[in-house]
């Protein structure tokens, strides 16, 4: 990430932010509400185009690409306000995650050519494996929109994971979850890092952040105000001021 900026009208939501994410690490992005964390994710994933600045993954530029191309570069994400496909089943949601890992087109689908049938089988098996990994294979057939909030977060997590990302962006994966579910999410994040996925996570739950992250980036009013190891960030004056200032206001 290099000097990424994005404004809305006069508001500089992300202002000249640069940082590096090490391969196979867990990096947390923290900061008060409105700091520009989600906007930063939107810039990386291509949902928003940056006004200026560059982004690279494995040395390849992605900052000019549309989101579906960025996804094919191995970047996947979840959304702060969950965006599942509500009328599709849990399994089908996760199967969409396999889209970029499969290729049959309109014609072979309509004619049900043997290749597309075999591929469909694979998509389904692989998706079931991911559901099993997340411990939600029991709800595979349920409509995603009808699930409780906590389950929806896990399904969204599973869908993102199904793309086999090299970089996974998680936007407040524990927001709205109870303690048990939060612990589960924390465990899942470390588990997938163990499988070679690099994780960039936005989270407000400080104990979760301090527990799992290797590095922390702190944003405030669109600017990066600190970056470092969890232990350093905990001691950082500026960070404490921003956070306490928030709390006292």
């Amino acid at each position: 990430m290099k000097q990424l900026s994005r404004s809305f009208g006069g508001l500089r939501a992300v202002d000249d932010v640069s940082f590096n994410v090490e391969k196979n690490s867990i990096t947390a992005v923290i900061g008060p509400n409105g700091a520009g964390k989600t906007t930063l994710f939107n810039l990386i994933s291509g949902a928003l185009a940056p006004d200026s600045g560059e982004a690279y993954i494995d040395g390849r530029p992605i900052h000019r690409l549309p989101p579906y191309r960025i996804a094919r570069h191995g970047i996947s994400r979840t959304f702060q306000n969950i965006k599942l496909f509500p009328h599709m089943t849990v399994l089908e949601n996760v199967m969409i995650g396999r889209h970029i890992r499969s290729r049959s087109g309109f014609l072979s689908a309509m004619l049900r050519l043997p290749g597309s049938r075999a591929e469909e089988q694979q998509i389904q098996e692989r998706s079931m494996e991911i559901l099993a990994l997340m411990g939600i294979e029991g709800i595979a057939g349920q409509e995603a929109g009808s699930l409780p909030f906590g389950k929806q977060r896990i399904v969204e997590f599973a869908r993102a994971l199904a793309t086999e990302p090299s970089l996974l962006l998680l936007d407040e994966p524990a927001a709205g979850l109870n303690m048990y579910e939060t612990a589960q999410v924390s465990e899942l994040i470390t588990k997938i890092r163990g499988r070679g996925v690099t994780v960039l996570v936005i989270e407000h739950d400080m104990s979760l952040v301090m527990n799992i992250s290797d590095m922390i980036v702190v944003l405030s009013s669109g600017k990066k105000i600190a970056e470092g190891l969890p232990s350093d960030i905990q001691k950082n004056r500026e960070v404490i001021r921003v956070y306490l200032g928030e709390d006292n206001a």
Binding site: S45, G46, A47, P66, P67, Y68, A71, R72, S76, R77, F79, K83, L84, F85, P86, H87, M88, E92, I96, G97, H99, I100, R159, A160, T163
Partner: peptide, 16 residues
């Protein structure tokens, strides 16, 4: 069907 559900999410999953 995913486009119908959420165009933004579909795009993020690599659906053109």
């Amino acid at each position: 069907r995913s486009i119908h559900g959420s165009e933004e999410a579909a795009n993020a999953m690599g659906v053109n």
